[in-house]
């Protein structure tokens, strides 16, 4: 029996969630030898509007490439959180930006609240790398791909000249997740 791991990255258009999905899928499929798919759903706007990116990782064939029974749901807006929570597995994990998602839905799932966008601005001086901080949190929490594979995938995917700040953002995300795990274990 092969495993199937489902991740949904949700927020608004322009937050860079499709890139995060592509990096995660590439880390799994190219550098870990697993199978992975990345799909997306967004509105016609270049910025704003609901946006989601979904990654399925498996050691077997991936037939249906969309998420149905989510293991990790990342929500960077309240709207996305409310809209997508229903598909979260009851043993799954909800990761939210603690400042943008103030009403956290109730359920048996684990909830991780971290000020992701604020951390990007304050610790790295660029709110635009919030997506990669979120990626670091997901890498640490899911343990589905190795840090090294994700670092390789980031270097291959991000615009030239931004590798360093993105790798720093990744490390920051890992730290934030470790801090949360230490506090809540």
């Amino acid at each position: 029996m092969s495993f199937r791991y489902e991740i949904r990255l949700s927020g608004s258009g322009g937050q860079g969630l499709i890139l995060v999905g592509k990096v995660l899928a590439e880390a799994a499929a190219i550098y870990e030898g697993l199978n992975a798919t990345q799909s997306q759903s967004y509105g016609p706007e270049a910025r704003g509007g609901a946006s989601r990116s979904e990654v399925i990782i498996s050691d077997g064939d991936i037939d249906y490439p969309k998420a149905e029974n989510i293991d990790i749901l990342l929500a960077l807006t309240q709207e996305a959180c409310d809209k997508y929570i229903a598909d979260l597995n009851e043993n799954g994990t909800l990761i939210v930006d603690s400042q943008l998602v103030t009403h956290v839905p109730e359920g048996n799932f684990r909830v991780i609240q971290i000020p992701i966008i604020q951390s990007a601005s304050e610790r790295l001086g660029k709110f635009i790398v919030a997506n990669i901080i979120a990626l670091g949190i997901i890498v640490k929490i899911s343990n589905i791909v190795s840090l090294e594979s994700v670092q390789h995938a980031i270097k291959a995917r991000v615009p030239k000249g931004t590798e360093e700040i993105n790798l720093k953002a990744l490390a920051e995300g890992i730290n934030l997740a470790e801090e949360w795990l230490n506090k809540n274990s």
């Binding site: 592509k22 798919t37 490439p65």
Partner: peptide, 9 residues
């Protein structure tokens, strides 16, 4: 659209 925008190996 699903297949056109689907990234896979």
């Amino acid at each position: 659209e699903l297949i056109g925008h689907l990234t896979e190996k």
